[in-house]
């Protein structure tokens, strides 16, 4: 039910936007969203933008995961030297 890919909005023309999905470009419908700007990343499903990807949220959650993971690496490294 759910094949949707992240795409960068390049250009907006009325109710459509030209998006770039890893090098593949296509005009998609943006009528399901209130407001989109060039540079936004949107989730594209069957030629429609479903949602704007919250880049800040994405980065924060990734960093959170990376932080745990770094901590864990250090913790693992420490006892192994004994």
């Amino acid at each position: 039910m759910c094949l949707a890919v992240p795409a960068e909005v390049l250009d907006i023309d009325g109710s459509t936007a030209l998006v770039d999905m890893a090098g593949v470009k296509r005009r998609i419908c943006i009528d399901l969203l209130d407001e989109v700007h060039p540079g936004d990343y949107v989730l594209v499903h069957v030629g429609f933008a479903l949602q704007i990807i919250d880049a800040q949220e994405a980065q924060e959650t990734l960093e959170l995961l990376r932080a745990c993971f770094q901590e864990d690496l250090h913790a693992a490294a420490a006892p192994s030297t004994e």
Binding site: L3, V5, M21, A22, G23, V24, R26, V44
Partner: peptide
């Protein structure tokens, strides 16, 4: 290649 992956992601 990046765009080969791209079109594969898009079309499943």
């Amino acid at each position: 290649q990046e765009d080969v992956r791209g079109i594969c992601e898009v079309l499943g």
